[in-house]
């Protein structure tokens, strides 16, 4: 028991590693602040583009979205980080993570937002357009607010996945929370920093999980 406490729940070790862990936490927050907005913006762009009446363009977009949903994110990240330099494109850890997350998360967000836009009845477009609203105003004021509300649980759930996924940045030596915890572990020969990192993830994600289950209960079935 004592051995368990000293190697997994060792407060002194965690305290000694606090600088590393804090920096890791800050970098994870940075990654979240980059990955979520990029994914949302890219996803929104893809969803809007797929409203085009041009069939071939819709098909290409669908292929694009499928491709990046099928590709394992870790494979994608390793390729962007380690493969693209062979094409003369050196992005560095942060740049690679940003690009990989843009490609991966935007594909998921795009699918969700497209479903949301599809769930808004055509009559809403028609009412707005017939009153003289431009297509852009119709989207922004009438369609998207309803679309987002209809798929809010899916959006939150996907965001949860994106936040969790930021830990794969550790494989390209981006000093985020998991990477720093492993550094601390190898320096201290103690697993407590990993436990601390897990706890930090839990604290970070718990509110999102709560929010999600509340949303899912509040909106059992929508029109």
């Amino acid at each position: 028991m004592e051995l368990f406490v000293s190697s997994f729940l060792n407060v002194e070790v965690v305290w000694a590693a606090r600088a590393l862990l804090l920096q890791g936490f800050a970098n994870t927050m940075l990654l979240i602040a980059i990955a979520v907005p990029l994914g949302l913006a890219g996803g929104l762009l893809l969803a809007l583009l797929s409203l085009t009446p041009v069939r071939i363009a819709r098909l290409l977009l669908a292929v694009w979205v499928d491709l990046f949903r099928a590709l394992p994110p870790l494979v994608l990240l390793v390729f962007v980080y380690g493969g693209l330099p062979f094409a003369g494109l050196e992005l560095g850890p942060l740049g690679s993570v940003a690009v990989a997350f843009l490609l991966n998360s935007s594909a998921y967000y795009a699918e969700i937002l497209r479903a949301g836009i599809d769930s808004v009845p055509r009559g809403q477009w028609e009412a707005a357009r017939s009153s003289g609203l431009s297509a852009l105003d119709t989207l922004g004021w009438v369609v998207l607010p309803q679309a987002v509300r209809n798929v809010l649980p899916d959006l939150v759930s996907n965001t949860l996945e994106v936040v969790k996924l930021t830990s794969i940045a550790s494989v390209v030596a981006m000093p985020e929370l998991l990477y720093q915890a492993r550094q601390a572990q190898s320096v201290t020969y103690n697993a407590s920093p990993l436990v601390a990192a897990a706890l930090i993830y839990l604290l970070l994600l718990w509110p999102l999980v709560r929010l999600l289950s509340r949303l899912e209960h509040r909106l059992p079935s929508r029109m």
């Binding site: 009845p121 009559g123 809403q124 028609e126 009412a127 707005a128 017939s130 009153s131 003289g132 609203l133 431009s134 105003d137 004021w141 009438v142 607010p145 309803q146 509300r149």
Partner: peptide, 26 residues
């Protein structure tokens, strides 16, 4: 002006918001 069989009010806006939207944006 156009009025539809199924009303097509914007469900996320109040009656006032429904009427005011085009007044503001158009």
């Amino acid at each position: 002006g156009m009025v539809f069989q199924s009303f097509n009010l914007y469900p996320h806006m109040t009656a006032l918001g429904n009427v005011a939207l085009a007044l503001r944006r158009v």
